[in-house]
Measured scan of single mutants.
Amino acid sequence: MKTQEELTEIVRDHFSDMGEAATLYVQVYESSLESLVGGVIFEDGRHYTFVYENEDLVYE
């Protein structure tokens, strides 16, 4: 099982292909040891929320 830090790095790496991230945040109260819930805000103003669970990243 991966730590939240490892899950955060996986998510950060995925979003790095989409541009320069200004902020990546984790909603600790919705996350667990198995999943990471949060969002990313890019330098150009785009904002996505995400759920990373079971090696699957879903974002909108």
Score class of each variant (00 low, 15 high):
M1S: 09
M1V: 11
M1G: 10
M1N: 10
K2H: 06
K2F: 07
K2E: 01
K2P: 07
K2I: 08
K2L: 10
K2S: 05
K2M: 08
K2G: 03
T3K: 04
T3W: 07
T3N: 05
T3I: 04
T3E: 03
T3F: 06
T3D: 03
Q4S: 05
Q4F: 13
Q4H: 06
Q4A: 08
Q4I: 14
Q4D: 04
E5F: 10
E5C: 13
E5V: 07
E5H: 07
E5D: 08
E5L: 08
E5N: 07
E6S: 05
E6R: 07
E6L: 07
E6K: 06
E6C: 14
L7C: 10
T8E: 14
T8G: 04
T8P: 03
T8C: 15
T8R: 08
T8Q: 08
T8V: 14
T8A: 10
T8H: 05
T8W: 13
E9V: 09
E9S: 10
E9K: 14
E9I: 11
E9G: 07
E9A: 13
E9T: 10
I10W: 08
I10A: 05
I10K: 06
I10R: 07
I10T: 04
I10S: 03
I10V: 05
V11H: 01
V11D: 01
V11Q: 03
V11S: 03
V11A: 04
R12S: 04
R12F: 08
R12V: 04
R12W: 12
R12D: 01
R12C: 15
R12P: 02
D13W: 13
D13I: 14
D13N: 14
D13A: 15
D13H: 14
D13G: 13
D13T: 14
D13C: 15
D13S: 14
D13K: 15
H14K: 12
H14F: 15
H14S: 05
H14R: 12
F15C: 11
F15G: 02
F15D: 01
F15S: 01
F15M: 04
S16H: 08
S16W: 09
S16D: 05
S16G: 07
D17Y: 14
D17M: 14
D17F: 14
D17V: 13
D17Q: 15
D17T: 15
M18Y: 07
M18T: 06
M18G: 04
M18F: 10
M18P: 03
M18C: 14
M18H: 06
G19A: 05
G19D: 04
G19P: 04
G19V: 06
G19K: 04
G19Q: 04
E20P: 11
E20D: 09
E20V: 14
E20C: 14
E20H: 12
E20A: 12
E20I: 14
E20Q: 12
A21I: 15
A21E: 07
A21C: 15
A21H: 11
A21P: 13
A21T: 12
A21Y: 13
A21W: 13
A21G: 13
A22R: 11
A22D: 05
A22H: 11
A22L: 14
A22I: 14
A22F: 15
A22Q: 09
T23G: 03
T23W: 14
T23P: 04
T23K: 09
T23V: 13
T23C: 15
L24E: 01
L24G: 01
L24S: 01
L24F: 12
L24V: 12
L24Y: 07
Y25P: 01
Y25F: 05
Y25G: 01
Y25I: 07
Y25H: 04
Y25W: 07
V26P: 00
V26L: 05
V26H: 00
V26G: 01
V26I: 13
V26Q: 01
V26F: 07
Q27H: 11
Q27F: 14
V28D: 05
V28R: 07
V28I: 12
V28K: 10
Y29H: 05
Y29T: 03
Y29M: 04
Y29I: 05
Y29R: 00
Y29Q: 03
Y29A: 03
E30C: 15
E30I: 14
E30T: 10
E30S: 13
E30V: 13
E30L: 13
E30P: 04
E30G: 06
E30D: 14
E30W: 13
S31E: 10
S31N: 06
S31Q: 11
S31D: 05
S31F: 11
S31C: 11
S31I: 11
S31W: 13
S32I: 08
S32G: 09
S32W: 09
S32Q: 09
S32M: 08
S32F: 09
S32E: 10
S32Y: 08
S32C: 12
S32V: 08
L33N: 12
L33E: 07
L33M: 10
L33F: 09
E34R: 11
E34M: 10
E34W: 09
E34L: 09
E34Y: 09
E34G: 15
E34H: 09
E34C: 13
E34N: 14
E34P: 11
E34F: 08
S35L: 15
S35K: 15
S35T: 13
S35Q: 12
S35G: 06
S35I: 15
L36S: 01
L36E: 00
L36W: 07
L36T: 03
L36N: 01
V37S: 08
V37T: 09
V37N: 02
V37M: 08
V37G: 02
G38V: 11
G38Y: 07
G38P: 01
G38K: 01
G38S: 02
G38I: 13
G38M: 11
G38T: 03
G38N: 02
G39W: 15
G39A: 11
G39V: 14
G39L: 14
G39K: 08
G39M: 14
G39H: 12
G39S: 11
G39I: 14
G39F: 15
V40F: 04
V40E: 01
I41C: 12
I41T: 05
I41W: 10
I41R: 04
I41V: 07
I41A: 02
I41H: 05
I41K: 04
F42L: 05
F42K: 00
F42A: 00
F42Y: 05
F42N: 00
F42M: 06
F42H: 00
F42W: 04
E43S: 13
E43D: 08
E43V: 13
E43F: 09
E43C: 13
E43L: 12
D44H: 02
D44P: 02
D44G: 04
D44M: 07
D44W: 13
G45K: 01
G45I: 06
G45L: 05
G45A: 02
G45W: 08
R46D: 01
R46K: 04
R46C: 09
R46A: 03
R46Q: 04
H47W: 09
H47P: 00
H47S: 06
H47T: 05
H47N: 03
H47M: 07
H47R: 06
H47Y: 09
H47G: 03
H47I: 09
Y48L: 05
Y48C: 08
Y48D: 00
Y48A: 00
Y48M: 04
Y48V: 03
Y48I: 06
T49M: 09
T49H: 11
T49Y: 10
T49V: 10
T49Q: 05
F50I: 02
F50G: 00
F50Y: 02
F50D: 00
F50A: 00
F50R: 00
F50H: 00
F50M: 00
V51Y: 07
V51R: 10
V51E: 01
V51S: 07
V51W: 10
V51N: 02
V51T: 08
V51G: 01
Y52L: 08
Y52W: 09
Y52V: 04
E53P: 02
E53D: 06
E53K: 13
E53V: 12
E53R: 11
E53T: 11
N54Y: 07
N54I: 08
N54V: 06
N54S: 06
N54R: 07
E55T: 06
E55V: 06
E55S: 12
E55K: 11
D56P: 02
D56Y: 14
D56H: 15
D56I: 15
D56V: 15
D56W: 14
D56R: 15
D56A: 14
D56M: 15
L57M: 06
L57K: 02
L57W: 06
L57Y: 04
L57S: 02
L57T: 01
V58A: 07
V58Q: 10
V58R: 13
Y59T: 04
Y59N: 02
Y59F: 12
Y59D: 02
Y59M: 08
Y59A: 04
E60M: 12
E60C: 15
E60A: 10
E60I: 13
